[in-house]
């Protein structure tokens, strides 16, 4: 999990390509989701469905709900980022940061 987070953060910090930055961001997010789900799992446990003849121990339902919410948020942010990147590409013709920042300014 830590490795994934670090890799993602490294990409966000160093990549000059906006699209790759967003991919790095998603790698980071995935690592956090992984941590949340892992913390709620039980060895040999069953899904938290009551009244279906499944035996305890159950996996924690809270962590599943958290991850679901987290994924939705991540998806929304990614969608907005992609649209912004497309707009930058249209208006500037590039999505490489070093090319974008060079002329004028």
């Amino acid at each position: 999990m830590v490795v994934l987070f670090a890799v993602g953060l490294y990409i966000v910090l160093t990549s000059q390509n906006l699209l790759k930055k967003i991919i790095g961001l998603n790698i980071m997010e995935t690592s956090v989701f992984g941590l949340i789900v892992t913390s709620g799992m039980v060895d040999g446990g069953s899904p938290p469905l009551l009244g279906r003849g499944l035996e305890a121990p159950y996996a924690s339902p809270v962590t599943h709900a958290l991850v679901l919410t987290g994924i939705v948020v991540a998806l929304s942010v990614t969608a907005l980022a992609l649209v912004l990147i497309v707009r930058v590409k249209r208006e500037c013709g590039s999505i490489e940061l070093d090319e974008l920042l060079e002329p004028e300014e």
Binding site: A79, V83, R90, E91
Partner: peptide, 20 residues
């Protein structure tokens, strides 16, 4: 959040805007 992202997308996109 999903809904806000959706109208955000509609708000910021450059449809019909300048292109290079």
């Amino acid at each position: 959040v999903i809904f806000a992202a959706l109208i955000a997308v509609l708000l910021v996109r450059s449809a019909g805007g300048p292109r290079t």
